[in-house]
């Protein structure tokens, strides 16, 4: 009976923690520490312009990392996000250059992302191949298709009207940041409030048990990869809007940054665990590191080193604190 009363007393706190987990709080502390360090070392680091810059620079990775988080939670991995984005980018771009109306060209880009994701999902869920191998294969395949389609050349000269769509700003924030924020909100709702979110966590947490409990395993997995593909396409649109051109080699190594952001944010590559809030914080941590180190004129070699160390540190802290959360 004491259990019950204790439970009641602890309820408000538990509810708060339910919303904002201990793990996310840890990631937030990490971000605050990193911000403080750069704030002390770099004059003008906290200028509004620079902070907005950080968000803008983080937005593409955050977008991919959100999709990656869902896939990782389902127990999989999507290594093909960069090439998916590239394929989506060159197809949209060449349609735009050819004078196709913007909505149609953008829709085509999303359709490509969706198809790429669906193919990954079907190979994983129905054919039963390992996600790492499947997406390693499609990583090369999609990249090759983008290169073949363009002959290896960039698609240049996107119409200014299209560029304006993704380069605008709203309430003083770049539109790209707002779009990704909305995507993050949707992803959070999906994970916390929908059956699909529960299914993702269950499939990644224990596929066999989820199956016995009637969870539609294949549909859940395919949906995760499809969303990852769609978000890769969204990242592609944002990027070509910003650059005004689409290169077939665009998005090289994007998958690694996305995985890093998800992992820093608390996603477990074993599946069944991950956080939208954490992933966003993880993406901003990576963006902040890059921004701050660049402002300090640190050589890119060392930037790479710092990124690597941040990931390892996050995992070590995870390991040490596990079992208490």
């Amino acid at each position: 009976m004491t259990d019950v009363t204790e439970h009641r007393a602890a309820r408000p706190r538990a509810e708060f923690l339910h919303r904002f987990s201990l793990r996310d709080a840890g990631t937030l502390i990490g971000l605050v520490v990193i911000l403080a360090v750069f704030g002390a070392l770099v004059p003008g680091f906290f200028a509004e312009r620079n902070l907005i810059n950080i968000l803008q620079q983080s937005s593409i990775n955050a977008c991919l990392a959100l999709g990656m988080t869902l896939v990782i939670i389902s127990g999989g991995i999507d290594l093909s996000v960069g090439p998916t984005a590239a394929l989506s980018a060159v197809i949209s771009a060449s349609m735009l250059v050819a004078g196709v109306p913007f909505p149609l060209a953008i829709a085509a880009g999303f359709a490509i992302g969706l198809v790429c994701g669906l193919l990954n999902g079907v190979l994983v869920a129905y054919v039963g191949l390992q996600p790492f191998i499947v997406t390693l294969g499609t990583l090369s395949t999609y990249r090759a298709l983008a290169l073949i389609y363009t002959g290896g050349n960039p698609v240049l000269g996107l119409p200014a009207g299209f560029r304006a769509i993704f380069n605008g700003s709203l309430f003083g924030l770049p539109l790209a940041v707002i779009i990704v924020a909305v995507v993050a909100l949707i992803a959070w709702i999906i994970l916390k409030k929908t059956p699909f979110g529960e299914y993702l966590l269950a499939v990644g947490g224990n596929e066999e048990a989820a199956y016995i409990a009637g969870v539609p395993i294949a549909r859940t997995k395919i949906a995760a990869y499809a969303i990852s593909g769609l978000l890769a396409a969204l990242a592609a649109q944002i990027l070509i809007g910003r650059l005004g051109a689409a290169e077939p080699i665009l998005g090289n190594l994007w998958e690694l940054d996305a995985i890093a952001a998800a992992a820093i944010g608390g996603a477990s590559l074993m599946g069944g665990k991950g956080s939208v809030v954490g992933t966003i914080l993880g993406a901003v941590i990576l963006g902040t590191m890059r921004n701050g180190l660049t402002l300090m004129n640190v050589q890119s070699f060392y930037q790479l080193l710092a990124t690597g160390l941040i990931i390892l540190a996050a995992m070590l802290i995870d390991r040490v604190t596990r079992g208490r959360g």
């Binding site: 966590l201 269950a202 048990a209």
Partner: peptide
């Protein structure tokens, strides 16, 4: 049977 990391409620509701 169980999805170990998930709560009692989630496991029940699955």
């Amino acid at each position: 049977g169980i999805v170990p990391l998930r709560s009692i409620s989630s496991n029940m509701a699955l």
